[in-house]
C-alpha cells in the first residue's frame, strides 16, 4: 500500500481527500495511473502528455525529491508515502 498526500488544488479531483491509498504501484508513474483510474483527470494534472512529471510539480517519496530518484520512474515500496506538491515557482 502506497500512501499519497495531495496538495490543496489537487483535492478538487479527489472529492476533498488529502490522503489516498494506492495498491500495487511499483513506481511514481504507475501510482499516478492508479490515481487517475480512481479519480479521472487527476493524472493529467501531475504528468504531461509524455508521462513526464510536470515541470512545476514536485513529487517526494517519503522525504526525498523524485528529481533525485529518477522522476516518474522513481521506485516505490510498500508503505512509502508520496507527497505531490506544486513547486515554489517564482519569487
Amino acid at each position: 500500500m502506497i500512501h499519497v498526500q495531495l496538495s490543496g488544488q489537487l483535492r478538487d479531483w479527489t472529492r476533498g481527500l488529502s490522503r489516498v491509498e494506492v495498491d500495487g504501484a511499483s513506481d511514481i508513474l504507475s501510482a499516478v495511473r492508479k490515481l487517475d483510474a480512481t479519480f479521472p483527470g487527476l493524472g493529467q494534472r501531475i504528468v504531461d502528455d509524455q508521462d513526464k512529471i510536470r515541470e512545476h510539480v514536485n513529487v517526494f517519496v517519503n522525504l526525498e525529491n523524485s528529481r533525485e530518484l529518477g522522476m516518474e520512474k522513481a521506485k516505490l515500496r510498500d508503505g512509502d508515502t508520496v507527497h505531490i506538491l506544486p513547486a515554489v515557482s517564482g519569487g
Binding site: 488544488q9 493529467q44 494534472r45 504531461d48 510536470r54 512545476h56 510539480v57
Partner: peptide, 8 residues
C-alpha cells in the same frame, strides 16, 4: 492554463 497543473 495553470503554471503548475497544466492546461485544460
Amino acid at each position: 492554463s495553470s503554471g503548475h497543473w497544466g492546461p485544460t
